[in-house]
Design a binder for these strands. Structure first.
Lengths: 101, 101
DNA sequence: ATATCATATCAATCGTTATTGATATAAATT
DNA sequence: AATTTATATCAATAACGATTGATATGATAT
């Protein structure tokens, strides 16, 4: 089943949404964050220390990921814990397979 | 098996390569081209007419895709036929699944 | 109340890349 | 040879997004 990407409202919308997702995880630091968080939820300081990334930059990338729904966060004391949203990841994994397989 | 993305030369290299691939297909017009070419090989004029994209811009995006190995091309008379390189697509599809599944 | 730690925001800069317009190349047709 | 058709290249611009430095917010501890 190939997606009809270039014709039909549905197809074009799916393709656009997929491209948006790709643009977000195409950034190496963000892909690293995704990879890291798949091992388990982590606070911001753990993330930027692991990745040797500036704190504010890490925060920014996390915001981008969160705005798209790829990660979620919860306050825990003075820390903020970020976690992967596996449902979203799976959704786009499936969409992508339509384009690549 | 999770990729050890943040430690180890191998892991970082794979992640970088994957991000490079993603950056290329994250561009909506290029993703459309990929989608279109999966239906079958096409000449440039067929592609830009289907996508309502300027000829030179189409040519540019095709070059980006070709440089990365995602598509290949062959001259056929006055036309140039572009085709998907399914092997490359599959390779990155598999890599991606490591990060998303 | 103050100091410290963790995180977020903001403005500015810098780099990359998509897009545009013009032009070049090259094959086919007349 | 001249024209047309198909494709590629190039320079310039415009848009976008990553990075940086400074600062703000908010929670905890003293």
């Amino acid at each position: 089943m190939q997606p009809k990407c270039c014709s039909g409202k549905q197809g074009v919308r799916e393709l656009t949404e997929t491209a948006d997702f790709l643009r977000i995880i195409a950034e190496p630091n963000r892909l690293k964050i995704v990879c890291l968080l798949r091992e388990g939820a982590k606070c911001v300081c753990d993330i930027w220390q692991h990745l040797d990334l500036a704190q504010n930059l890490t925060s920014h990338h996390l915001k981008v990921l969160k705005d798209f729904g790829i990660v979620s966060s919860k306050q825990q004391g003075s820390k903020v814990i970020y976690a992967i949203n596996r449902k979203v990841l799976r959704k786009f994994s499936n969409l992508l397979n339509l384009y690549l397989n």
